[in-house]
């Protein structure tokens, strides 16, 4: 049991390390950011705002929650990749009836 637990621990350390590596930008990626449309009710954001208010942060007037989607690559990102990301962001990753694509950025 202990061995298994140790292995799990070491795996999660490794995952954490690689996640940190990703965050430092070592993996080439395209980041697509999506938000619910301004005039739509964002229930998640509303619930989080209520909780923040309960914690005394009453100066926060609203919270809105969106999505960050990372497209990872094992090679350098080309202009075509960005075009593809733009296309997929518009046609699949977001739904323009309910969401807006806020940004598509490249991170090397």
């Amino acid at each position: 049991m202990d061995v298994a637990r140790l292995q799990t621990a070491s795996n999660s350390t490794r995952n954490l390390a690689s996640a940190q590596e990703n965050r430092r930008g070592k993996v080439p990626k395209i980041i697509v950011e999506i938000m619910p449309k301004q005039d739509l009710l964002d229930p998640q954001g509303k619930a989080v705002a209520n909780s923040l208010h309960r914690a005394g942060q009453e100066e926060i007037s609203a919270v809105r929650i969106g999505k960050r989607i990372e497209l990872h690559f094992d090679r350098e990102i080309t202009d075509q990749d960005l075009e593809m990301a733009k296309d997929q962001a518009a046609n699949f990753l977001s739904n323009d009836v309910i969401e807006d694509v806020i940004a598509i950025t490249k991170e090397d």
């Binding site: 739509l40 009710l41 229930p43 739904n95 009836v97 309910i98």
Partner: peptide, 9 residues
């Protein structure tokens, strides 16, 4: 159109 979370959650 689209379908979103129910008004009252």
């Amino acid at each position: 159109g689209g379908l979103i979370r129910n008004e009252k959650q």
